[in-house]
Write a protein that binds this DNA or RNA. Structure first.
Length: 554
RNA sequence: UGACCCAUUGUGUAACGGUAGCACGGCAGAUUUUGGUUCUGUUAGUCAAGGUUCGAAACCUUGUGGGUCAACCA
């Protein structure tokens, strides 16, 4: 049976359009970032939506940089954005466009509107225009310059373009409706004078179109059939359609969906920049950042992000996604792909008293029990090993399956041991060493001992272990919604969001690990090799812990 | 005090006038040489009040609650 997957409301619109032969059944979407910051997890949803929906209906997706404001936009961001989209697994082929590619065409459109007496040059100041607009509760007033002749408007606009007037001296506005309840219809500004070097057009222009006069027309020029954007643009749609009608251009359709909010995260480029600038994080790609580059460095697989975006769904209601869902997608992916390794973060020595002095042996262990094709590796074992300090308790509670005086445990892929003696520091009372017995016939894979051990511990062989460090992370913010009204989001920054543990002990199989490799540290979680690693000294970022089960508190 | 959008278990999302389902989470159990994974069971929901209808989560009205809109930003 076919599993009947229900459609989201955008797919319903598209299928309806296809069924009615609109645009001959063609589907063409676009992802339109402004190159003024790095992409974050919220953008990932828009990227996945646009690319996946085009793929589903046999269409294409363009990448288009919405670069109409040269004051904030830079080539550095263009490159970072392209890298992030590719990393996510999407390809726009040769369709890399820029709104600035259309500046000449846009200028012609403006001339057309002037000729149709639908646009006028306004000498009012920004403050005066704001005043003319009125408020949502009161209608606006006509600009005193609204009645200029077509000839005068044409002359003034050409001279604006030719650089005859200082920045901000005049703007081009369209004549829509100053009494409209929708503020965006109150004779919006469509061109402003701004002497700014543009990252692509250089100093060719001193006038630049506004968003409303660039975005929709760019969609139209590219033949975009379904222009998907977030809900806050819903009030722009009447204007979007007004321009299509008045200009008589290809009728792209704007459809709005709700952006995704993820708790404990912020997705405001301005505020993300503030975290970078104030040194709260080390950069846009700090592993604690909700940016695409941040989660990549953190070790989140691209596939996990894609599945997350799919699970989150598409609708129009405000939503708060639990960060646990993202983490569950990451665990699910890494469980399938990450190689298992044993690492001791906080070691305590275990001496196997009845193991021959000076002897070592190699014990095979599976690289990933979820994927047999990853094979096995050999782990050295010997008389002195290291286990996790938290895996030993002098006075354990009930249901404690780990090591304690007299207790018996299995060493993963090795032998069963029983604790017989505890060595303490005479002055501090701290446990410094645990002495155990091992059962030679309990060897993993050929266990004939008949002994049952409740718990299994990870370990490393002391003298063959290699060293490294790990960065453990907590949420970057202490509040589910850091932007909650009232206090400033900076006061919600978690001061303990990163903890570095130096001198961790790793099994020797890590020797050839490289930047970006992901591993499961058995019984700890998933970790990825950071680019700060140096030969002989691996640095890991904690990607996500294993799902928490039992914990020894109480 | 205007216009527009929205309202389904804790969270997200279906049901298109005809049995309120799925995923994640929670809880309980089974399996387990990772207290992971996997498997099984279970929990819990239509914002409110009217109306239309044989029948309403859905359609209508009015409330209520949340969100968005007044940059020469996008």
């Amino acid at each position: 049976m076919e599993d009947q997957k229900s459609l989201n409301f955008i797919e319903e619109i598209i299928e309806h359009d296809i069924a009615h032969g609109k645009h001959a059944g063609r589907v063409h979407t676009r992802f339109p970032p402004e190159p003024n910051g790095y992409l974050h997890i919220g953008h990932a949803k828009a990227i996945c939506l646009n690319f996946e929906i085009a793929k589903k209906y046999g269409g294409k997706t363009n990448l288009r940089f919405d670069d109409t404001n040269p004051a904030t936009e830079e080539t550095e961001y263009v490159n970072a954005i392209k890298r992030d989209i590719h990393w996510l697994g999407y390809d726009w082929e040769d369709r890399e466009y820029y709104a600035s590619d259309y500046f000449d065409q846009l200028y012609e459109y403006a001339l057309d509107l002037i000729r149709k007496d639908l646009a006028f040059v306004d000498d009012s100041t920004a403050e005066e225009i704001a005043e003319q607009k009125g408020t949502p509760n009161e209608p606006g007033k006509l600009s005193p310059f609204r009645s200029r002749s077509v000839e005068e408007n044409m002359d003034l606009f050409v001279r604006m373009k030719d650089g005859e007037f200082p920045d901000g001296a005049r703007v081009l506005r369209v004549k829509v409706d100053m009494t409209a309840p929708n503020m965006h219809m109150r004779d919006p500004v469509i061109y402003r004078i701004k002497r700014q070097h543009h990252h692509r057009t250089g100093d060719k222009w001193c006038i630049y179109p506004m968003y409303d006069f660039a975005h929709g027309q760019s969609d139209s020029i590219e033949g975009i059939t379904h222009s998907l954007c977030s809900l806050e643009f819903i009030h722009h749609r009447p204007l979007y359609e007004w321009f299509i009608e008045k200009l008589g251009i290809f009728p792209s359709r704007q459809i709005e969906f709700a952006r995704m909010n993820v708790n404990f995260m912020i997705t405001s480029k301005r505020r993300l920049l503030q975290l970078v600038n104030e040194g709260i994080v080390t950069g846009w790609d700090d592993p604690r950042m909700p940016t695409i580059s941040g989660v990549r460095r953190r070790g989140y697989p691209a596939a996990a992000i894609r599945i997350f975006c799919e699970k989150v769904g598409i609708a129009k209601r405000d939503n708060w996604i639990e960060i646990e869902l993202l983490e569950s997608c990451v665990r699910n992916e890494l469980n399938q792909t990450a190689l298992r390794r044993m690492v001791v973060l906080d070691p305590i020595r275990v001496v196997i008293t009845n193991y021959p002095e000076g002897q070592t042996e190699l014990l095979p262990s599976e690289n990933n029990p979820e994927n047999e094709s990853t094979g096995e590796r050999d782990i050295p074992f010997g008389k002195v090993i290291l286990i996790e300090r938290e895996d030993f308790m002098l006075d354990p509670p009930k249901k404690y399956f780990r090591l304690a005086p007299g207790a018996t445990v299995r060493l993963k892929s090795a032998y069963i041991i029983t604790c017989q003696e505890v060595i303490k520091d005479e002055t501090t009372g701290e446990v410094t060493e645990v002495h155990c017995n091992y059962y030679p016939d309990s060897k993993s894979g050929s266990d004939t001992s008949g002994i049952k051990a409740k718990g299994t511990l990870h370990w490393v062989h002391e003298s063959s272990a290699i060293s490294g460090e790990v960065r453990m992370f907590e949420r970057l913010f202490t509040a589910e919604n850091p932007m909650d009204e009232g206090s400033d989001f900076m006061s919600k920054v978690n001061p303990q969001s990163q903890k570095v543990i130096k001198n961790i002990r790793l099994e020797p199989a890590f020797a050839d690990a490289v930047d970006g490799d992901s591993f499961q540290f058995i019984r700890h979680g998933y970790f990825t090799v950071d680019r700060d690693s140096k030969p002989g000294h691996l640095v890991f970022n904690q990607t996500v812990s294993l799902k928490e089960g039992w914990s020894p508190k109480e």
